[in-house]
């Protein structure tokens, strides 16, 4: 299972997540330059925290349902990390602590950015592979 449509969807999802992370990083550097105050920043970012995690989780489940074991395993660590954060209730940004934890948040965002970027190209590659294979099968 797992035709090109699955990977087309994942490419789009990864692109979406990628942009979310870019947005987060831009917001953090705005905070550092004092263009935005921490209260507004946290209110804004906190709207995106859970959707981002859910989107990633759904994508991972989709791989599981479609039997893409390898891709699924690639994503499991991040899902586990997110679930752990939610369980400890520190997934939301706290305006009173933001300056103390800013470097950690930035590191996390950069890591996620890199991960989504790699995922994006990997899904793209898999999509093209699936398309070519599909094309070959049709020809045959």
């Amino acid at each position: 299972m797992g035709g090109w449509w699955l990977f087309l969807f994942s490419v789009l999802a990864a692109a979406g997540l990628l942009f979310t992370m870019v947005f987060f990083i831009i917001m953090f550097s705005d905070l550092e330059c004092d263009y935005i105050n921490p209260i507004d920043l946290c209110n804004k970012l906190n709207q995106f925290v859970l959707p981002e995690m859910i989107a990633h989780c759904v994508l991972t489940m989709l791989f599981l349902l479609c039997g893409q074991w390898f891709t699924f395993l690639l994503n499991v660590p991040l899902v586990a990390y997110n679930i752990n954060k939610v369980n400890q209730k520190n997934h939301m940004y706290d305006a009173t602590e933001i300056f103390r934890t800013l470097s950690g948040h930035k590191r996390e965002c950069f890591f996620k950015l890199g991960f989504y970027l790699l995922s994006f190209f990997y899904y793209l590659y898999r999509m093209i592979l699936a398309l070519i294979q599909g094309g070959l099968e049709v020809k045959r």
């Binding site: 905070l31 550092e32 004092d34 105050n37 921490p38 305006a95 009173t96 933001i98 300056f99 103390r100």
Partner: peptide
């Protein structure tokens, strides 16, 4: 680098 006391840290050093 770090602030302690009763206040709200509004920007990196404010």
């Amino acid at each position: 680098s770090a602030f302690h006391g009763n206040f709200f840290v509004r920007s990196t050093d404010l």
